[in-house]
């Protein structure tokens, strides 16, 4: 059994919060640069150039890419041969707390959703997802995500008989909201599983690099087809009109019930924030 202290996890989470908020995902930055020739709108092109400039300023001056430094989702892949010494949940939250307090990051979490909506003042709690995997390492992925793109997410239990057509129709309807998600966006789609599982699948789809091709050929071509369709909508960079609405579409699937076809779609914005480390 390999031992890892909870305090080490806290320290890594803190560093990843800084990295994610100050450094634009490299594949997104590259994707924005690659998309420039495809953009026919002059305003759209200018927006893409501003996104590139923003990434340079944020990295250089350690300023958040976006003022909405998000709620923090933390994905933990924990090797079964690892023993975490201490309280893991508290450690993750401690890392988030320290980063948001010390890094001049905005605190956007409210403790109660309906009535008081009082700010927790340190951006905790983080939303933690744990997967147990083989091995003796811990992989930590930190994904701060803004409220605007989160609000554009949708989940629906689709009719099984309509299959892939229902999925495409649902995603394209949801993509109408991309204008509010700071496009060009990354589209994460979850299909299958259960009501609770499918949202997480969509979130996990957002983690995949732009260049990552779905290993299942039918899903790979569905990803490409949906990407092409979304980019025909005319929404464009910043929603001000244009051809570059989405940089990538990623689909994650899971087994489901004979009566069910759950689907969820979520977006990541042009300031996509994500950082990972392996302990």
């Amino acid at each position: 059994m390999r031992e890892i202290s909870a305090s080490e996890v806290a320290s890594v989470v803190k560093d990843l919060c800084f990295k994610a908020n100050f450094m634009l995902r490299q594949d997104i930055l590259d994707g924005v640069k690659r998309s420039l020739p495809a953009e026919l709108s002059a305003t759209g092109k200018e927006v893409l150039e501003q996104i590139i400039k923003n990434a340079e300023i944020a990295a250089r001056e350690k300023l958040p890419l976006c003022q909405d430094t998000g709620y923090v989702t933390v994905f933990l892949e924990i090797g079964q041969n690892v023993l975490i010494k201490g309280d893991l949940t508290s450690a993750v939250n401690e890392g988030v707390r320290q980063a948001y307090l010390e890094g001049y990051l905005r605190k956007s979490m409210v403790a109660s959703p309906i009535f008081e909506r009082e700010n927790t003042l340190d951006n905790t709690p983080a939303f933690i997802n744990v997967d147990l995997v083989a091995g003796d390492k811990v992989k930590i992925i930190v994904m701060p995500k803004g409220g605007g793109t989160e609000n554009a997410s949708q989940l629906r239990m689709l009719p099984v008989s309509e299959g892939v057509d229902a999925v495409k129709k649902f995603v394209l309807e949801a993509a109408e909201n991309a204008a509010k998600s700071c496009p060009p966006v990354l589209v994460g789609i979850g299909i299958g599983g259960s009501f609770d599982k499918v949202g997480l699948l969509a979130k996990k789809a957002l983690l995949r690099p732009l260049s990552d091709k779905n290993p299942k050929p039918k899903l790979a071509s569905l990803e490409e087809e949906i990407l092409a369709e979304i980019n025909k909508l005319g929404i464009g960079p910043a929603g001000l009109g244009g051809r570059v609405t989405a940089l990538g579409v990623k689909i994650e699937t899971a087994p489901t019930h004979i009566a069910c076809l759950p689907a969820a779609v979520t977006f990541n914005c042009c300031a996509a924030r994500q950082a990972e480390a392996i302990i």
């Binding site: 927006v47 923003n54 976006c66 910043a238 914005c269 300031a271």
Partner: peptide
């Protein structure tokens, strides 16, 4: 007026 979302570090300048 529309300002561009996701370029907040640039806009702060």
């Amino acid at each position: 007026f529309a300002a561009v979302g996701g370029i907040a570090a640039l806009l702060s300048s």
